[in-house]
Each structure stands twice: as structure tokens, then as C-alpha cells.
Amino acid sequence: MTTLTAPRPTVAARRERAARAGGPRKKLNLVPHLFLGVLILYFLVPLWWLIVASTKDVQGLFGGDSALWFGKTFAFGENLVSLVTYNDGIYLQWFGNSLFYAVAGGLGSTALAVLAGYGFAKFRFAGRNFSMALLLGSVMVPLTALVIPTFVMMSSMSLTNTVWAVILPSLLNPFGVYLMSVYASEGIADDMLDAARVDGAGEFRIFATVALPLMRPAFVTVLLLSIVSCWNNYFLPLAMLSSPKLFPITVGIGLWQGQASANNGGGESLWSLIIIGSLMSIVPLVIAFLSLQRYWQGGLSLGSLK
């Protein structure tokens, strides 16, 4: 609660503070900068390896070239071509599936969360307190513990191995509802809603025209977080789906990795597909995070509300 209500220090105040701190302590700042430099290296090493390895052909990969530097050949293009043509372009299919699951699950769960959060924050109804307590309790339920029972449940309705088996359970996002309700009760003044009511606006029009625009920062944050968790999900689609045509990238690459390590000799060409496929699979989210910085950096402070 504190982060939202406490007045944020103005940019000017921060600059001033920084300038004051920067003057006489400039030398001391070397140590923290070194610390950060080492951290950047640590966090980027795996990515660097992936980029370097994606430019190598099979000989370069297995031939004992330096693991952290480019080899003699530059086979990035050929690797990319074999990635998208392998097995009739199954990788592109997986990519599309991941995109579909992430957008459908993310948009759906965020829409449900914004509605429910607004309802919990702005209306008093019977069972509200009980439902809120239930909601908070459910944040503590490990969602993977639900995967196997959900699988059995859906398989009795013959819904497993369909897109619904992945999308419908992804709509459940209790933490998103909680964030939205905190944000709505702090960020939307009751007076404003009452004024709109006096003007004769219907409740859903008030929600759409008054409340929703005010909740935009929370909406974008919850949307981004749920898209990430859908895109990255592994256990749920792994359990639910059996035909490779429906796999998202995570399950597909896991499948390739299992095949490649099971058959160590013939799997060599598969390893380079796994490497470049992994690299391509992280591009969309990395771009999304770099370009939407403004939104998530502000919005993630919601996570510290208590």
C-alpha cells in the first residue's frame, strides 16, 4: 500500500540528490560499478553462448572451437533455414501456437482480472469478504499441483489435447485479481463514480469510460505478466497435449532435446536446431520488455503492495 500512496519523489528532487551524492563520492562509485559490471557478465553469459553457438555449423559446434567465441564458419543463415524447414516447418507451427496461447490466455485472464478486481474494490455485496479471503488464500495454492487433477477432469470431457486444455486453465490468475483490486481501490475515487452515476450513466458504461482508463497502468502490467507466464509455461501444456502440432515452443524444444540426447550420434544436427530455436524463441519477449520498459518498470511496484 505504501508504494502507491506515498508521494513519489519528483524527478528534480532525485536529480538533485544524485548530483549531491555524485560530487564528493565519485571515487567510491567505482566499486558499485564494478559490482554491476560483473553481474552484467554473469547474466549475459548464457545468452552470449547461445548467440555464438547459433552461428556455428555442426563441425564448429562439436569440433572443439572456443565455446565462447565465433568459429571459422558463419552458418547462422543456414541454421535458420533448416530450423524453419525441418519436419515441414513444425517450429513455425510451435511459434504460432505459443503466440496464440500467450495472447489468448494473457488477454483473457487480464480481462477477467480487471473486471473482478473492480467489482471487489468498488462494490459491497454479500459474500464479498469471504470471497476476498478465498482469493488471497488461493494465491498460496501451488498452481502446478492443479495440473494433474485438471488433466484428469478435462480428459473425462475429452478436452485434453485441444487448445482449450491450455487456454482455459491459463485464465486463472488470482494474483492478477488481487493486484487489480488494490489498484482500483487506491486509484479510482468513489466520488468520480458517484458523479457519473448522478449523470445517469449505467454501471458498465462507467466501468468502460471512467474506471478502465484509470486502471490502464495496472492493466498493462498484469497483461505483460500473464503473457510472460503463458509464453513460458511448460508443465501445463506438457501434461495436456500429446500431438506435436499443438505444442508451444517450450514443449517442442523440450521434445527435441529429449530426442537429441537419447540418440547421441544421429542427434547432432538436432542440437543446432535446438540452439537456434531457443534463440529465436526468446526474441519476442525480449523485444516486448525492452520496448515496454516504461510500463512494466512503473507497474511492477504493484508487486510490492501488501
Binding site: F43, L44, P46, Y234, S278
Partner: peptide, 18 residues
């Protein structure tokens, strides 16, 4: 930004890279 970046990478891919 760089320290945060791994969050955008699926756990499957992160585990594979390591």
C-alpha cells in the same frame, strides 16, 4: 535492464542454455 532480462526467458530455455 540486463539483470532483469532472464525473467523474459522461459525456464525451459534458461535451463537448456545453462
Amino acid at each position: 535492464l540486463m539483470v532483469f532480462l532472464p525473467y523474459a526467458i522461459p525456464a525451459v530455455i534458461g535451463s537448456l542454455m545453462w
